[in-house]
């Protein structure tokens, strides 16, 4: 019996003009795996993540998410993307954002889940506030709530710990654990050694190419810093 793949890339590459951000890569991530994506700045992590989420078109090859072409309607239903920069509507409160995103993804019983997430991140009192006016850390917490309030099978996260305080960081790690236990696939681009160490697998990118693909039982510091 073949293993079901949550993510599959075939010769996936991306150029920006005459600069190659990601050389054609082959990457398969089985369902339920917890994968850490590491590499120095400019190594191609964000490009790969944006290609998987459908925000970028590949220059070469193709990517599949849950067996569907990245960016297709089915893939969008499968994959939840937490960007490195939180983006919100200027005129919607945190709670309105949560309702909107959850309902767009077909989740009608969103209220309890939303309140639970708000409580975990200490945002209950700010549920009616505009996230566009928040500090960087609070914005990041609100963005995390949005990524988790919707149903997903694959979670793709880009530098999620930026701006988070220690309690926010702990809650996020707990959410990762919960999702992993539920059999969700996680792909987390990070420089956080704890997250990398807790992963099932580490993929290191260097200059747009896979420099390491294996167990986290290695010199993580060198991988994370791109050594």
């Amino acid at each position: 019996m073949t293993e079901q793949l949550a993510i599959e890339t075939k010769g996936l590459g991306r150029d920006y003009g005459d600069v190659t951000a990601l050389h054609p890569i082959e990457l398969t991530v089985p369902t339920g795996q917890r994968l850490a994506l590491v590499g120095h700045n400019g190594s191609g992590k964000t490009t790969l993540i944006r290609l998987l989420s459908g925000l970028l078109d590949p220059s070469a090859g193709a990517a599949k998410v849950g067996g569907h072409t990245a960016g297709s309607l089915e893939a969008r239903a499968t994959l939840s993307y937490l960007a490195d920069q939180p983006i919100f509507y200027d005129d919607l409160s945190v709670l309105e954002h949560l309702e909107y995103v959850a309902r767009l993804h077909g989740r009608d019983d969103w209220s309890d889940a939303a309140n639970d997430l708000l409580e975990r991140f200490g945002l209950t009192d700010r549920a009616g506030h505009l996230p566009s006016t928040f500090s960087r850390g609070l914005k990041q917490k609100a963005a995390i709530c949005l990524a988790f309030v919707r149903p997903f099978d694959v979670l793709v996260v880009d530098e999620p710990f930026v701006g988070l305080d220690s309690s926010g960081r702990d809650e996020l790690l707990a959410l990762f654990d919960d999702a992993h236990e539920l059999g969700k696939t996680l792909l987390v681009a990070t420089h956080e050694l704890t997250t990398v160490a807790a992963s099932d697998r580490v993929v290191a990118l260097r200059d747009g190419q896979i420099a390491y693909d294996g167990s986290p039982d290695t010199d993580l510091g060198a991988l994370v810093e791109g050594g």
Partner: peptide
């Protein structure tokens, strides 16, 4: 479209 529409709307499973 608004940047927020791109992230929240165009990445949602709803007909583009």
């Amino acid at each position: 479209v608004e940047a927020a529409d791109v992230v929240h709307l165009l990445l949602a499973p709803i007909s583009r």
